[in-house]
Amino acid sequence: MAGYVKRSRQTNGHTASKGGTEESPFFKWLLITVALLFSILFLLLPLVNVFAQALSKGWQAYWTALSEPDAWAAIKLTLLVAAITVPLNVVFGLAAAWAIAKFDFRGKSLLNTLIDLPFSVSPVVAGLMYVLLFGLQGYFGRWLADHEIKIIFAVPGIVIATIFITFPFVARELIPVMQATRSEQEQAALTLGATGWQTFWRVTLPSVKWGLLYGIILCNARAMGEFGAVSVVSGHITGQTDTMPLRIEKLYQEYNAAAAFAIASLLALLALLTLGIKTFLEWKQERDYERAQRAAESYEDSTAPTSREPEITAVRSQP
């Protein structure tokens, strides 16, 4: 629930006349003005401000802030965490979606709820849970220390906490898409001799690829930007366990606002890129939907009494 935003938008396309169902122009423009002001205040200004502040001391300072070793280390760590987290959650998402969308079993809705659970857990609480498990005082702390495995205040902890936070994204996107592709397509592949893997790679995966990509970009954005959970488990060791968001906090506390904004501007760019891809994917989905609608219409045409169906004249015998 409280983790991401749903986008199911299939416009009804009813361009019914608006006579009598339209507000007075004054009221209409009042509403538009209020909405615009609200959007500018809460959406546009914060966005523009990031870049304005990042460049407030000029390009030179901006570049220095980004190329500084600690900043560079934070960038690399963030990329590393995303590079581990996203593939793992993709594998999980595919497995969970396959099991949930293609089969019936008891406790399916419970499983669905459990998958959504991380959305409703506060990031700080999530981080704490892993401290309690893997921290020095934690349930596995002694054992881990004996084997010289460091999870908390180290990269593995950051990765695990990020996995938790981004856990539902791919699965949540894939489950409805996989349910929508009729399992008859998979059955057809089976009757033609395809094995389970062949069916999955050649039929299932191509038909859910846009949904998967959508899930991946959301998962990635969240993985790179996670703050609360990572903050609890990272230990804030500069140059070692500082991700980009943590680095921003540290610079901010050091009153180095311009440097903080410089790193923040990279994450803001990531957010814009994510929005761009998201918008593109939604547009694509809408287009596919319209195509399907059109196909259905042409299908109706072909079944109309005046048939455009080519006459089937002769069936040639098979050599």
Binding site: V50, F261, A271
Partner: peptide, 28 residues
């Protein structure tokens, strides 16, 4: 005018890392 842009921007708080949001808002 600008409707499509605003529409796309609605998801911005969701896509923006919270640390960046806090940083820019406190600065504003």
């Amino acid at each position: 005018p600008g409707k499509k842009f605003i529409d796309a921007l609605v998801d911005f708080p969701f896509a923006l890392p919270t640390a960046v949001a806090g940083l820019t808002l406190s600065n504003l």
